[in-house]
Design a protein around this nucleic acid. Structure first.
Lengths: 135, 135
DNA sequence: TTTTGTGCAAAGAGTTTGCAACTAG
DNA sequence: CTAGTTGCAAACTCTTTGCACAAAA
């Protein structure tokens, strides 16, 4: 991902956008970030970017299909790169740790349920909440 | 549902609580209500109840297991009576209409996924979004 | 140069809280 | 009587917006 990706979706290549992309890509296992998280990471890197810009950029990325916005419990909004695999999430209620999974059986049932009810499927949101067992 | 239900969970039987219960029960097919919806319905009935009380009561009901709180896209919070069937929701992206469904196949997979990943399942949230087909 | 993006501060939506008055038990 | 409840207004959190300035194409 780079400046070329931005041009492709009609966004000018600017420093805030590049930095935010970089953070989303580089976050590794911690790539489920709130806008505030992204903002703080920018500050830690010494970037002078406003929180409003973070929201604007994330929203633009979402509309461009670069980013997915997830709504967890308690109205917590999380952003992650849209890798196109349309995965779902398993969230630890104790630690907040987020794990991804893809389940073909569930995907198929979702398609069927939409169809059975006469809906054109446009998306879904599945979050499983649980406590990571001690062992 | 009545005053007895309230006593059972340790809440005093007050007029705002009874009225809110009544609204949640009587809403029929429209029983997916925002706090604001409930508040407006109270006003329409000529009840002098504050919005803060609506939030407080709904939150208490949720903690008591009488009510479920759902978080749809765009951070819209919806409240519904908790009937104990643990159903999921199908939402029309055009009209906002909400339909309930229960799918044993999905339920089972969710239990398995939690287990496979070493989590004690505490709950899940599944919302399917789609457009109701014209016909 | 023209269009688009940015930072800041202010505004907005939804929800929660402090507090004095009130009411169910 | 007394602990729990309420209405009101103020506070809070998260997010969006208006606007003058700055930067990309």
């Amino acid at each position: 991902m780079s400046g070329a990706e931005l041009k492709k979706v009609g966004l000018k290549v600017t420093l805030p956008r590049l930095k935010i992309l970089e953070i989303l890509e580089g976050a590794g296992d911690q790539h489920h970030l709130t806008a505030e998280d992204v903002y703080k990471m920018l500050l830690e890197q010494g970037e002078e970017v406003g929180l409003a810009t973070v929201y604007r950029v994330l929203t633009q990325f979402e509309q461009a299909g670069i980013v997915r916005r997830l709504n967890f419990e308690n109205n917590i909004s999380i952003f992650e790169l849209d890798t196109g695999d349309n995965h779902d999430h398993l969230v630890c209620v104790k630690t907040g740790h987020v794990k991804e999974f893809v389940d073909p059986v569930i995907e198929e049932r979702i398609r069927e349920i939409a169809k059975e009810n006469g809906y054109s499927l446009s998306g879904h949101s599945l979050v499983i909440y649980g406590a990571l067992d001690a062992h």
